[in-house]
Design a binder for these strands. Structure first.
Length: 893
DNA sequence: CGATCCCGCCACATT
DNA sequence: AATGTGGCGGGATCG
């Protein structure tokens, strides 16, 4: 355009060559022209501009020209009216224009004409999408700004987003280098991987370090320290981290952009609503204050979305949820990147996944690390890319670089995951999210489950429908069982079970029966899982085979990551990929160390644990929304389980059939569930999430033994007699209580069976509720296999398990993902899970607190309701208050 | 009236 | 101190 303009302009304009006609034509008031000065240049540019005022005028004036050009381009077309404008000059004229313009319709430069999206299109039109590698195009911000007739500030908005996708890189002050889309797929791939890791897994995290390095400020708020940046940093590289990392505000816009893109890449549906994205992106804070923050975030997202839209990567759509329609964006860019996954993702079925995952995971992380390394400025990739550098890509890519930010980015990304979790929680609290979730959940029962929990409240409508129907049946059956459950629970409680300890199978015994109870009204959410890292991992491979069935692989990416994490403990930051894994493992490890950790609502305790939960929730929510995940995550774990479980599965299936709602999620889910179910899971933790806002769901999961072990409130649970209890919020009331059928019967008999039963229960729940429960079940199932199952109850020992639990869950998820497509969907979930683990990291510090909290909780638990209330309210504040109780399920080894 | 998001102040970073 | 960057949010416009 510029060119055109100039050429045209030249002739036209009286002025010299103002780049834009605009100025010339109209209006440029003399003054204005003169003003311009600044910079500019040497070149042909017009002098006139500069001043914004002038610009505006110019713009208006120019508009006509613009439009012509635009038309050419097409871009403008959409705009329609906007264009016109030729008319008059000066501002005054604008008014006139309208009248005058009749012909065109135009109205002066309407706001749209000046939209960032349009501006971006113009900007992009200036450069070739696929420039010759050899030639390098440099972009002068001033020049562009003047040519396009906008203030430089706007150009920054565009460039920052483009930079996040590596379409451009900053070379120097005011100078950017245009790369075009050559690396776009690579970048997206990297982002996807990173997204999977983060969101999917979460990271890890080392709280401690984090504190030091990054400021705690924000992070801590969340309570999710881990999630936040630190972990990444830690992982990535120590050195860098501190430095680069440092806070800085970093360009949130860049980071946000990447995160935003990651959400799309991770989501199944490829649709992300603004509010969800905003929630996820809001890293810190959660608290009340946020509102304004949320608003600001959304504003930024619009900016980003406009640019992405111009890039044809996304398009605006509306998602109508039950309530109403929400603005959302659909990813229309490439979904699969050549080569991208390959190893990483691993959707490969079976065993591969593990490998992949591990490695794959590493890669992403690495990336981050890399980024960090560079403190200074490298340009090449900012955030996400890290991977490249470190791992494969390497790249050098770019030349240059500048910007150290990447490191930060990486960390941030990590944080994002955490944030997401938190947010999710919050969201859950909030209705909107919940709704979505619910919806999604409905669609995908399993997947949603987690999410659904959150949403529950409001959506009751929705929720109800799906859930109730499906659920009820189950419940009914279950109810009777309660007694059984009790029996079971008792068993569970008594961790002593050696059998359980033995291994996965054994463990089941504990859980066996765990049925679920859903109470409407409470807001508690408890998640119990127990798992061991090892087992889970191991299982994963197997699982892969099992779970894969569906293996859609689509987005599956996440799973791998999870697995990865789980697989490795590595602390070493050096390897990116490893980082996560290690972290994850570590987390798990750590947790394991800690016998019982309670996860308190994030903030309150600050313990990381809470985070995970949230994170999971968040993720799930995200998925749901976007994708409706599948509950794949759960499935993954199952694979392992399958062995013993199969029988269970069969049972489960039956149940499922019953349970299934009309809606019924996809079969895949069922599978997953089955798998999950099959695996016994041991609830190590209890998660209580009371979302303040959420309200609707409360879940109580008992780990198998946990309850007993925990001592939580045996009385409480016991009374229930169900290992897991899900309590919907009051609002939920609609929900019936659900007891896992399987549980009832089985309990005593065979541990395995019981597990399976339990698992099934969970699944059922999920299907029914379509919400969180499912996840839980899954995770737990996954976890259980090994350690968890073991019944040990010792608090401390259990603690060990506990830690695992979260990790386990994550792992399991990862496994699931790997295996089945479903997993893919769930990736997010998984992530969340991991996060928790990460959160947990802190085991140390946390532990004590947790314990206390933990205990408390139980007490509170005594009354489910009361419990909910109390905690829910309290916790809420943090966005999600989640508490995890770890139950020691068994003593891990 | 809610969704969008332009506009530009102003703080922080870099030179 | 000047200039580059870019966070941020008021408030206008759109639908």
């Amino acid at each position: 355009e510029n060119i055109f303009d100039r050429s045209r302009m030249a002739p036209k304009t009286p002025i010299k060559n103002a780049p834009v006609d605009l100025s010339k034509q109209k209006g440029c008031t003399p003054e204005r022209n003169p003003i311009t000065p600044v910079k500019l240049t040497d070149r042909p540019q017009p002098d006139p501009w500069t001043p914004t005022a002038n610009l505006k005028i110019l713009v208006s004036a120019a508009s006509p020209d613009m439009r012509d050009r635009e038309k050419k381009k097409e871009l403008f077309r959409p705009i329609e009216n906007s264009e016109q404008g030729d008319t008059t000059d000066s501002l005054q004229d604008d008014m006139v224009d309208d009248s005058t313009v009749d012909e065109f319709e135009k109205q002066r430069p309407s706001r749209k004409q000046k939209s960032l999206g349009l501006l971006c299109q113009k900007f992009l039109a200036r450069y070739p999408s696929y420039p010759l590698s050899t030639e390098k195009t440099t972009i002068s911000l001033d020049e562009v700004a003047s040519v396009l007739g906008v203030e430089r500030r706007r150009i920054y908005d565009i460039v920052n987003v483009l930079e996040s996708l590596h379409l451009v890189s900053r070379v120097a002050k005011n100078q950017y280098c245009w790369h075009g889309r050559h690396n776009l797929s690579q970048t997206l791939k990297t982002l996807q991987e990173a997204g999977e890791l983060q969101y999917g897994e979460l990271m890890t995290f080392p709280q401690k370090e984090q504190d030091l390095e990054y400021k705690t400020g924000e992070q801590k708020k969340e309570t999710i320290p881990d999630t936040q940046g630190k972990p990444p940093l830690d992982f990535s590289e120590p050195d860098c981290t501190s430095a680069s990392a440092n806070s800085r505000k970093d360009k949130s816009l860049r980071i946000m952009s990447q995160k935003f893109v990651m959400l799309f890449l991770v989501s199944k549906t490829k649709i992300v609503t603004l509010d969800i994205a905003a929630k996820i992106l809001i890293e810190e804070t959660q608290d009340p204050v946020d509102h304004s923050k949320f608003k600001t975030k959304v504003r930024r997202l619009y900016d980003i979305a406009n640019v992405l839209t111009s890039l044809d990567l996304i398009k605006k759509v509306h998602v109508t949820e039950e309530r109403g329609r929400k603005p959302a964006f659909k990813w229309i860019g490439p979904v699969e990147f050549p080569g991208k996954m390959d190893e990483l993702r691993g959707h490969s079925p079976t065993s591969d996944p593990l490998l992949r995952t591990q490695r794959g995971v590493c890669a992403p992380y690495q990336i981050c690390a890399t980024g960090k390394q560079r403190f200074t400025r490298h340009t090449s990739f900012n955030s996400v890319q890290p991977c490249e550098g470190s791992r494969r890509k390497v790249s050098s890519e770019p030349n240059s670089p500048h910007q150290e930010r990447q490191d930060e980015y990486c960390s941030k990304i990590i944080n994002l995951a955490a944030v997401c979790r938190q947010k999710i929680e919050e969201d859950t609290g909030n209705k909107a999210c919940a709704k979505k979730t619910i919806l999604t959940s409905i669609k995908n029962p399993s997947t949603t489950s987690a999410l659904s929990l959150l949403p529950v409240p409001r959506d009751a409508d929705f929720c109800v429908n799906p859930l109730p129907q499906a659920v009820f049946p189950v419940v009914q059956a279950d109810v009777p069982n309660l007694s059984l459950l009790n029996g079971v629970s008792s068993q569970a409680l008594h961790p002593s079970m050696p059998a359980a300890s033995k291994t996965e199978n054994g463990k089941p015994t504990l859980l066996p029966s765990q049925p679920f109870l859903c109470f409407p009204s409470s807001s508690l959410f408890m998640l119990c899982t127990s798992l061991q890292e090892n087992s889970s991992r191991e299982t994963l491979p197997t699982t892969g085979g099992m779970g894969n069935r569906n293996a859609e692989g689509q987005a599956a990416v996440p799973p791998p990551a999870c697995q990865k994490r789980s697989s490795h403990e590595c602390t070493s930051p050096s390897v990116p990929g490893d980082d996560e894994e290690p972290a994850a493992k570590k987390q798990t490890m750590e947790r394991s160390d800690v016998p019982l950790s309670l996860v308190v609502p994030k903030k309150s305790f600050e313990s990381p644990k809470a985070e995970p939960t949230q994170g999971s929730a968040c993720t799930s929510a995200v998925h749901l929304e976007d994708f409706h995940l599948d509950h794949a995550s759960p499935a993954a774990p199952e694979a392992v389980q399958k062995e013993s479980t199969k029988t269970l599965d069969s049972q489960n299936q039956e149940k499922r059939s019953q349970n299934k709602d009309p809606d019924e999620p996809s079969p895949g889910k069922e599978h997953i569930l089955k798998e999950n179910t099959s695996q016994p899971f041991l609830p190590q933790y209890l998660y209580v999430q009371p979302a303040a806002g959420l309200s609707s769901f409360n879940f109580l999961f008992t780990a198998n033994q946990t309850p007993g072990a925990i001592s939580l409130a045996p009385s409480q649970l016991p009374s229930l007699s169900v290992p897991c209890v899900v309590v919907p919020s009051a609002a939920l009331a609609s929900f019936p209580v659900v007891c896992s059928p399987s549980v009832t019967g089985p309990l005593s008999p065979v541990p395995d069976a019981s597990f399976s039963a339990a698992a099934s229960m969970n699944f059922n729940m999920c299907s029914l509720a379509s919400t969180a429960p499912v996840f839980i079940g899954t995770t737990s199932a996954v976890v259980t296999p090994k350690v968890t199952t073991t019944p040990l109850v010792d608090p401390q020992q259990p603690a060990h398990p506990t830690p695992h639990m979260s990790p386990v869950l994550a792992r399991s998820c990862g496994a699931l993902q790997l295996d089945s497509p479903v997993c893919m969907g769930h990736p997010v979930t998984l992530l969340k899970l991991q996060q928790p683990s990460s959160a947990p990291l802190t085991p140390k510090s946390i532990r004590p607190a947790h314990h206390e909290a933990f205990f408390k909780t139980p007490g509170s638990l005594g009354d489910p309701v009361a419990w909910k209330k109390n905690e829910g309210n309290q916790t809420r504040n943090a966005s999600s208050v989640q508490r995890r109780l770890e139950i020691s399920s068994t003593s891990p080894d």
